[in-house]
Nucleic acid binder design. Structure first.
Length: 369
DNA sequence: AACCCTTCCAACCGCGGAAAT
DNA sequence: GATTTCCGCGGTTGGAAGGGT
């Protein structure tokens, strides 16, 4: 007993939506019946399109709340920063940009921002200057733990190196001269903004955005923490000793697509590398807390439910409670069939106003925009 | 005017998870 | 529980548009 196929026998149309009558049918139907079932929308609105195609047309073009003007510098900055924090999770990034779709953001990144960063000498994947990557590339070669992690430089780096080699002006430190609005941005919240910088408008200057960044970074950590719990034995070389529950065993019943990604020894990831440092936090001066993050053990990042319960270490009761939860988390990790897992990460907090500063080691280094 | 090249973006594709049956 | 469809996401691509020669 299975669902009947929705579109068999239908003479389904593909390609551009250049017929205004087609476009008009979707909003008319959606306003009456909503967007719950796109197959129904397609059928009942009389469109010879797959429901999926109708949904795409609606979400990317016909939705009344969409912005159609070009991206503002502020939006541009936000995209770059969020991309630095969470990578190409366009739907999450787009949620922070009212009126923009994931497709908008993705296209804008691929056509404009990526190139812009490359021309500035910044690797759009790691958000670090190519010169620093090269330096690190040399340094990392000497580190025992990283010997097998370094593969080849990515295509962008190569392109940029070619691009830079064509430039007659070479900057002393290997940094290009910046001449656009991104020039003076420094992303670390710990660094004082210069007067002429755009940090006055910077997202780091309001706590709401800091919270957002915290959540987004948590996605990375939750994802990796989940990997850690489920697949520690499979990928021990990417995670520091002690950063995971050592008693956790892989969970065959809940395979994670992220965790299952085969990480070739040759495919070096800066995110993995930085994350590894994040678990080595050594910031005695910073007030540290514990962030409890609950996951449902599912593989996709969108499935995670996060609780950002900050527990100050100085509050003994909370700490004891946190330790108890941690213990439970470890126990849960032992259960392959457990539907709920927990893990802990350290965070840095601003003691005065109790706001999120970052994860130890993760964003301590400034980004170079 | 014709051709070529680049840019841009709308749409498609494939995947994984959820939901329906 | 098995099977199929639906939905949402990120990556990729085809082709229109624009600019240069």
């Amino acid at each position: 007993m299975v669902r009947p196929p929705c579109c068999t026998g239908l003479n389904v149309k593909k390609g551009l939506w250049n017929n205004e009558k087609e476009d008009a049918k979707i909003p008319a139907y959606v306003s009456k019946h909503g967007t719950r079932n796109w197959t129904e929308v397609s059928k009942k609105a009389g469109l010879k399109r797959y429901g999926k195609s109708c949904r795409l047309r609606w979400t990317n073009h016909l939705r009344p709340d969409l912005k159609h003007e070009s991206f503002t510098p502020e939006e541009e900055e936000l995209i770059i920063r969020l991309h630095a924090a969470i990578g190409s999770r366009w739907s999450i990034i787009a949620q922070q940009l009212p009126g923009r779709t994931d497709s908008d953001v993705k296209n804008y990144w691929n056509t404009k921002l990526r190139k812009k960063l490359i021309e500035m000498g910044i690797d759009p994947v790691t958000h670090k200057p190519f010169s620093q990557i090269l330096a690190d590339y040399g340094n990392i070669g000497g580190l025992p733990r990283a010997r097998t992690q370094i593969g080849s430089l990515n295509r962008d780096l190569k392109n940029a190196l070619m691009f830079k080699s064509e430039q007659s002006q070479i900057q002393p430190q290997g940094f290009p001269k910046f001449n656009n609005h991104l020039t003076s941005l420094v992303t670390s919240p710990k660094i004082e903004p210069t007067q002429d910088s755009l940090l006055s408008n910077d997202i780091y200057n309001n706590h709401q955005s800091l919270d957002l960044l915290a959540q987004l970074q948590s996605i990375i950590l939750v994802t990796e923490a989940s990997n850690c719990i489920n697949h520690e034995t499979a990928q021990p070389q990417f995670l520091s000793e002690g950063s995971c529950s050592s008693s956790a065993s892989p969970s065959p019943s809940s395979p994670s697509s992220i965790a299952n990604q085969v990480r070739s020894p040759l495919s070096f990831s800066w995110r993995d590398f930085l994350l590894e440092d994040a678990f080595h936090g050594d910031n005695a001066q910073e007030q540290e807390g514990l962030v409890e993050i609950s996951t449902n053990g599912s593989s996709s990042h969108k499935q995670y439910e996060m609780q950002m319960n900050v527990l100050h270490t100085e509050e003994k009761q909370n700490l004891e409670a946190a330790q108890e939860v941690e213990l439970n988390a470890q126990n849960n990790g032992l259960e392959a069939s457990s539907s709920s897992q927990s893990s802990f990460v350290e965070v840095m907090l601003d003691q005065e106003n109790d706001t999120f500063l970052g994860f130890p080691g993760l964003l301590e280094e400034p980004l170079y925009y």
